[in-house]
Design a protein around this nucleic acid. Structure first.
Lengths: 345, 345
DNA sequence: TTGCCTTTGGAAATCGTTATCGACAACGAT
DNA sequence: ATCGTTGTCGATAACGATTTCCAAAGGCAA
């Protein structure tokens, strides 16, 4: 697997041992050269540097991490690489540029559901050895206790014990429903999210607040449980749309649910936005490509990643943070799944 | 930084030492419990398992990697997390689900340009220790030699020495320009890419092939160097659009260049697609959100990632691969930046 | 030539984990 | 009563790199 060809070009992994042997010095000398330590003769330095370049050697991240406390690597821990976490990842990459840190994104890939507390185990796997600090995306449990430098980007849970960066779910739901009210809608249904997640609770609360603020009252029959699940959301949408007096607009707790609602509308032959307007939440990429393109609430995912990283870097540097719970505003993206209410003749 | 609270809940990193101490056994015993090795009394097993769960211990990826040859981790090495590599990453995540592998994406974050051969150094850092195999996205050099399990997803270079998965640039450029010809265009300009990249050469070749196949001849004045760079692409587009007899359609070597072209058209007061049609290449997310939405050639990025991963897993398993150079077809995404040529009155 | 200091390179310990192997107790069999 | 066997468990040596400490070599002055 590992060898050296005629030009000294290696194929395969190169260790410090090999560099030392090739250069005719000890490993410690090679280490000193790499880390620019005092105590190496200029010509030895030159010679060893040459060998290192020729072999294309670079210190193993693993071995170095194990020995040193600092690794200059920041970790992003995700349950899976879906749209939300990927966008956050890009934001982290943005923020890391020029800081001298490297970036490692880690995912156990689907084996998550086995243990609810995946975040704690992930942290145990990488913190202190592979990475200096970590950004956890979308944790499932709220009671994570960890006193290393860790920041959560957390769309779902409430104020956890960890430093957190999240979008304002309450405000987002408000502007979504306000938008529908402005368009003249009065019977506004909602496909709700997973009741155990704070994000879903807040989005429902925002919905209720907006209705009340408009001087209307909430009709509990117009709330159907979608649970952030495509199948269940379809059922919920179907229930709402087949009501004797169906709503003229539906606010879905996330885009997945909203897209399911669009699907059901097509099935039932109901025109969107002609007969019913639909608003989503999240602004995942697919929402722009839907038919019709989905009006939705945009979460500033990249910015969440950037802010979380800035906070994390500060934490690693040992700085004191005044506010460890940042909330960012959402914005409404108006596309073509919402329209003014046609006044019935 | 690390401690144990009243409930035995640790805050901070947990090592095997701590588990051993807490359980009153040796580290070797803990190791045996974790790896389900023979030679542990049932009640000891039970007891240690309890302590492990209570402390939320999980073995350090780094230390384990260092000791073992196999890590069950696959690495994705990227220069940066931009749209292309992120989509490929999602594909890798797709393919990895259910294989038992974990996924680590690694980026040195912008410090790349310092050394052109970043891929070789990345490999040296992680291969053999942190990961069992790697997918390299967008390598810059063609002569990477490495005999471990490594697959390149490579939109830019030609047939390299590494196993490679790439989109068919020639075919993609053909269908883009064929589309313009079908719409009636005859004077078709091109904003070309970086001449040193094989992808750019192939896209230009596809352009020339399409023109010739239609029985037309290539007007060299209608080719302008965009170099895959936003600024330079703007200049190129400006040059083409301010020609005395400007082209009625422009094929840009990538979406970045196409978006720059749209920009310039707006500046010059030229209507797209009324006065000039524009086609891009890549189908990056931004292209769908442009004004007008960009007609472009879609690279199946996720599929590239999936295929690369499938090949990598086979390589790690030691299987023989017949064809180590896979080429995937591209498809045309028709949006609203292209239209039929208005016949001049 | 001797003694001392400076320069330079090497040996050893360490990080957290795993595999190997040896220690030791309990027990049954002779 | 002694021996061998089985079952448990712990001590130890790696993995690759870094760092601390120490020894060897060379230079210089006396």
């Amino acid at each position: 697997m590992t060898g050296v060809d005629g030009n000294g070009q290696t194929t395969g992994r190169v260790t410090m041992q090999q560099v030392a042997a090739e250069a005719g010095v000890s490993v410690s000398t090679v280490s000193k050269v790499i880390n620019a330590r005092y105590g190496v003769a200029p010509e030895t330095f030159e010679h060893v540097t040459g060998v290192i370049n020729r072999l294309g050697y670079e210190a193993s991240l693993v071995a170095r991490s194990l020995r040193n406390t600092r690794t200059n690597v920041i970790g992003v821990l995700v349950a899976d690489f879906e749209p939300f976490s990927t966008e956050v990842l890009k934001g982290v990459a943005d923020a890391i540029r020029g800081t001298g840190y490297e970036l490692v994104a880690y995912s156990a890939g689907g084996r998550v559901d086995e243990h609810v507390g995946w975040e704690r185990r992930y942290l145990s796997r990488v913190m202190g050895t592979l990475v200096d600090g970590a950004v956890i995306v979308t944790p499932t449990v709220t009671d994570v206790q960890y006193d290393g430098p860790v920041v959560a980007v957390d769309p779902h849970t409430g104020r956890s014990s960890l430093p957190t960066v999240a979008a304002d779910n309450l405000q987002g739901a408000r502007i979504a429903v306000d938008h529908l009210i402005e368009l003249g809608h009065r019977r506004i249904g909602m496909v709700t999210g997973r009741p155990d997640l704070v994000s879903a609770q807040l989005r429902e609360q925002g919905y209720r607040d907006a209705i009340h603020a408009a001087g209307l009252r909430v009709d509990e029959d117009l709330l159907a449980l979608g649970a952030f699940d495509p199948e269940q959301a379809r059922e919920a949408a179907r229930a709402l749309l087949t009501l004797p007096d169906p709503p003229t607009a539906i606010f879905a707790a996330n885009d997945i649910s909203a897209l399911a609602t669009l699907d059901v509308a097509v099935e039932l032959g109901i025109d969107v936005p002609g007969a019913v307007s639909v608003v989503g939440f999240d602004n995942i990429p697919e929402s722009a490509l839907a038919h019709p393109p989905l009006t939705t609430v945009h979460q500033p995912m990249r910015q969440l990643g950037r802010d979380a990283t800035a906070m994390l870097v500060a934490l690693i540097a040992g700085e004191e943070i005044d506010d460890t719970h940042i909330t960012l505003d959402t914005t409404l993206v108006r596309r073509r799944s919402t329209a003014s209410l046609e006044v019935p003749s």
